[in-house]
Computed example of a mutant assay.
Amino acid sequence: MKLYIKNMVCTRCKMVVKQELIKLGIHFSMVELGEVEIIENISCEQQNQLRVALLKAGLELMDDSKSVLIEQIKNVIIDLVHNSEEPLAIKFSEYLHQKLNHDYTYLANLFSEVQGTTIEQFLITHKIERVKELLVYDQINLTEIAYQMHYSSVAHLSTQFKKVTGLTPSHFKQLKNKKRVMLDAV
């Protein structure tokens, strides 16, 4: 049995979900961003207890299939941007289609309708947040960041960064108060 959870965006979220499942005696085989594979069926009482526990942690158990699909889109993007350094061998739209087994146009229209922004804008926002993170860490240069984040050039990255933040990457790096946004707030 699969359960879908909203706002799971990081490893800590996965740890919280695992802890709550263990506390409630719910056996699971897998906990990934946005979803949990439960070994056996759980009672309504257990499901309600899990719902309450997750809400306290800022997470939400989802029932609506459209909400589940939106979260899956977000999780694919977050995983791609924050956990993958390999460039895509195919277009992003095809990648999303293959991951979620839905037509990209359907996914794009649903996402825009529900989120009030496009999949592309959501992807760009996450890429820029990741670039900010890499700039703050100061372990790799802008050329390496552009490559790692799948930009065609440093100029493309810089243009998009300035369009989103109002700053150039070098100016952002010089700021003393480097403001970054938490992933679940993006």
Results as ranks from 00 to 15, higher is better:
residue 2 K to N: 13
residue 2 K to F: 11
residue 4 Y to K: 06
residue 8 M to K: 03
residue 13 C to N: 06
residue 16 V to F: 02
residue 17 V to Q: 01
residue 23 K to N: 14
residue 24 L to A: 03
residue 25 G to Y: 05
residue 30 M to S: 15
residue 32 E to D: 09
residue 33 L to Q: 04
residue 34 G to W: 05
residue 38 I to S: 05
residue 53 A to V: 04
residue 54 L to D: 04
residue 55 L to T: 10
residue 56 K to S: 12
residue 58 G to I: 02
residue 60 E to Q: 14
residue 65 S to Q: 15
residue 66 K to T: 14
residue 68 V to C: 07
residue 68 V to N: 08
residue 68 V to D: 07
residue 69 L to A: 04
residue 75 N to S: 05
residue 79 D to H: 15
residue 82 H to T: 10
residue 84 S to N: 06
residue 85 E to H: 07
residue 85 E to W: 10
residue 85 E to R: 14
residue 87 P to S: 11
residue 88 L to Y: 03
residue 89 A to I: 10
residue 91 K to C: 09
residue 99 K to Y: 04
residue 99 K to W: 00
residue 103 D to C: 03
residue 104 Y to N: 01
residue 105 T to P: 05
residue 105 T to M: 09
residue 105 T to S: 08
residue 108 A to C: 06
residue 108 A to P: 02
residue 109 N to D: 14
residue 114 V to Y: 08
residue 117 T to Y: 12
residue 120 E to T: 14
residue 123 L to V: 05
residue 123 L to S: 13
residue 125 T to Y: 13
residue 127 K to W: 00
residue 127 K to T: 09
residue 128 I to Y: 03
residue 128 I to G: 00
residue 129 E to Q: 10
residue 131 V to R: 00
residue 136 V to K: 04
residue 136 V to P: 04
residue 140 I to Q: 12
residue 142 L to M: 12
residue 148 Q to W: 09
residue 151 Y to I: 07
residue 155 A to M: 10
residue 159 T to R: 11
residue 159 T to L: 06
residue 162 K to G: 01
residue 165 T to E: 03
residue 172 F to E: 02
residue 172 F to C: 06
residue 175 L to Q: 12
residue 176 K to A: 15
residue 180 R to C: 05
residue 182 M to G: 05
residue 184 D to Q: 13
residue 185 A to V: 15
residue 186 V to L: 12
